[in-house]
Write a protein that binds this DNA or RNA. Structure first.
Lengths: 170, 170
DNA sequence: TAAAACTTTCATAAATAATTGAAAGTTCGA
DNA sequence: TCGAACTTTCAATTATTTATGAAAGTTTTA
C-alpha cells in the first residue's frame, strides 16, 4: 500500500468511527487529517485535502476546538490561523469522555431526578413503588459511571495504566 | 407528577440517550417500556403503548434480542409471543459494551492492521516513519481498550464494584 | 387441509442530520 | 478610515437514517 492510500484509509475509517461517538463524520476526518499531519494546517489546507466546503471546514474545526481535540495557533508572520490536533490518545480519549459525560450522562441524571417526584397515592402504591425502585437502580448505576468519568477526567495516564493492569490480572 | 407522565418522560429520555449509543431511538424506547413494565408485553402491546408501526415494532424487538437486551417468552395457553427486558443495569451495560466492541473497535483495529502494511521507500522514509509511529500508538491504545472490554464481558458486577472503589480512592 | 392468528419483509415515505456556498462579518495593516 | 485577507453564519440543498403499512410468510388449531 502506498503512503497516501494508507493515510486516506485511516482518515475514512476514523471518520466512520467518529460517527458512532457523537463526533460527526467530517469532524472526525478533520481530526484524523490533523493527527497525521506533521505540520499544523490552515482551514484552506484542510478544505483542499478533504474536499469539503468552507463552511463545513469551519464548523468542524470549531467543534473540535470546543471538544478540546484541536488547538488554534498562529504562525509568525502569517495572517492565517493554523490548527493542530491533540495526538496523544490518552488525552483524546479523556476529552471525548468529558464531553460525553456533559452531553449524555447529565441529561439522563436530571430526568431520573425529576421522575422520582412522582405522586404516590393509595391507588398506585404498588405500581409506583416498583417504578421508583427501578429508577433508583438506574440512577445508582448512572451516578457510579458519572463519578468514574469525572475522576478519569482529572487522572493521568500512568495511574490509569496501573489500574488497568490490576484490572487485567484477575 | 403523575405516574403515567413520569413513565412517559423516562421512555422519551431513554430513547434519546439510546440514539447516542448506537441503539436507535425507538429501540431504546421499547427497551425502556419493557424495563418499567411489570409484565412481559406482546408486540401488539408495545405497538399500542408507543404508537409505532407494526414493522418498526418488530424490527426494534428483533434488534433488542440480538443485543441481548430483551428476551422472548411464551405464556401458557397463549399463542402470542411476549417480551421482557433485562432490568439489571450491570447486564444492560455489559451487553451494550459487548456489541459496541464488536461493531466499532473491531473494524478500526482491522484498518490499523492493514495500514501498517504501507510501503516504505527511501523517498518517504521519514514521513512514513512518523505515520507508522502514530498508527502504532493508536493501535496500542485501542487494543488496551479492547482487552478491557473483553474482560468486562466475562466479569461480574461485584468484581467491577470493588475495582471501582479502588478506582475512586486515589 | 383450510383458515385464523400471528410475524416478518421491504419498497416507499417521512424525519433527521450534515453539507454547501454565497453573503455578511471581522480583523489587521497602511 | 479603507480595503484586502481571512472567518463565520445560515437558508437552501443533499444525504442518511428511521418508520410506515400493505403484502407475503409462517405457525397453529380445528
Amino acid at each position: 500500500m502506498q503512503l497516501d492510500e494508507a493515510k486516506e484509509k485511516f482518515i475514512a475509517s476514523w471518520g466512520s468511527l467518529g460517527s458512532n461517538w457523537g463526533v460527526s463524520r467530517t469532524m472526525a476526518q478533520v481530526h484524523a487529517l490533523l493527527m497525521i499531519s506533521e505540520e499544523p494546517m490552515s482551514a484552506e489546507d484542510v478544505m483542499g485535502a478533504l474536499n469539503i466546503s468552507r463552511g463545513n471546514t469551519n464548523m468542524s474545526i470549531r467543534s473540535l476546538i470546543d471538544w478540546g481535540l484541536v488547538e488554534k495557533l498562529h504562525k509568525l508572520g502569517e495572517r492565517k490561523e493554523f490548527f493542530q490536533a491533540e495526538k496523544d490518545m490518552w488525552k483524546v480519549a479523556t476529552r471525548i469522555a468529558r464531553e460525553r459525560r456533559k452531553r449524555e450522562l447529565a441529561p439522563i441524571m436530571s430526568v431520573l431526578e425529576q421522575v422520582k417526584e412522582v405522586e404516590v397515592s393509595d391507588g398506585n402504591k404498588q405500581e409506583a413503588g416498583k417504578f421508583l425502585k427501578q429508577m433508583n437502580e438506574i440512577e445508582n448505576f448512572a451516578s457510579r459511571i458519572d463519578r468514574m468519568m469525572a475522576k478519569l477526567d482529572q487522572a493521568d495516564e500512568r495511574w490509569f495504566s496501573s489500574l488497568l493492569s490490576k484490572f487485567m490480572k484477575r
